[in-house]
């Protein structure tokens, strides 16, 4: 079975983002970038499916600027067999990304698509569900466990009340949650070898995307800072302040 995994280049999760003074967007110049953590989990799950003999080929796909090839190289170093890069310097909304991914799905005919549940930059949590809709597939969102057989995938999902298990007909779209696995790190020899693996890079203009102009980013602001930092010396003082100053007890 071929597995398609999505890889998004985002700000490194340890880096604090800055807003541009003109409020037009966040400022990512000279910012450390990395693979979205939920995409790392998606890649790892695909690797484990291959190690178990369930997946035969892993194709990593990224839609984004030229530099997104760095994250595809990481996926290749981790063990993806080949990569597809759809180059777009412009920011796309989740629907547009899902539409491009649907094209790749039509070309590649994967048995399973694994995406991160959300990217830690836009925090949208939309693309997997949208791709499932556009391709007519079932969706297993926020997955914490997968069990793949010939005909179906059983997916255990992290939901508000606890865990829910569904069975989906294949092909299907899975989006990863934090507890699905713990991603491995790439080893140096594999990083060297990955330089020889193929990345099929094409411009966004080659996929026939009918971009929409529905969403417009009006401005980006820094949220009001919270005034904190005061300390109490004892439990008694804490209880007293909560009762008489904050009046929440």
């Amino acid at each position: 079975m071929k597995v398609l995994v999505g890889v998004k280049r985002v700000i490194d999760y340890n880096v604090k983002v800055r807003v541009r003074p003109d409020q037009s967007d966040v400022d990512l110049t000279n910012t450390k970038m990395a693979m979205n953590p939920f995409c790392e989990i998606a890649v790892e799950e695909a690797l484990r499916l291959k190690e178990r003999g369930v997946a035969s080929e892993i194709v990593a796909v990224s839609i984004g600027p030229k530099a997104a090839q760095e994250q595809l190289r990481t996926a290749l170093a981790l063990g993806a067999d080949r990569a597809i890069h759809i180059e777009s310097e412009e920011r796309l909304d989740s629907l547009e990304v899902a539409q491009v991914l649907a094209r790749i799905v039509a070309e590649e005919q994967p048995g399973l698509v694994i995406l991160g549940k959300q990217a830690i930059d836009s925090d949208n949590n939309q693309t997997g569900q949208m791709l499932a809709a556009l391709t007519g597939m079932g969706q297993g969102t926020f997955a914490s466990r997968l069990e793949v057989t010939d005909e179906e995938v059983q997916v255990t999902r992290e939901v508000d009340g606890g865990l829910r298990t569904l069975a989906l007909r294949l092909p299907a779209v899975i989006t990863t949650d934090l507890r699905l696995n713990e991603p491995r790190h790439a080893r140096l020899p594999d990083i060297m070898k990955a330089k020889k693996k193929p990345i099929d890079s094409r411009g966004i203009d080659t996929v026939g995307l009918a971009a929409n102009d529905y969403l417009r980013l009006e401005r980006v602001e820094t949220p009001a800072a919270r005034q904190g930092g005061s300390k109490v010396a004892s439990v008694d003082e804490l209880v007293d302040k909560l009762k008489h100053e904050a009046k929440v007890l």
Binding site: S122, Y214, T222
Partner: peptide
């Protein structure tokens, strides 16, 4: 809506 784990607040208009 908050973006980047609430480090920034985006204002978006939707013309759909």
């Amino acid at each position: 809506r908050p973006i980047y784990a609430g480090s920034a607040i985006a204002t978006l208009s939707n013309h759909a």
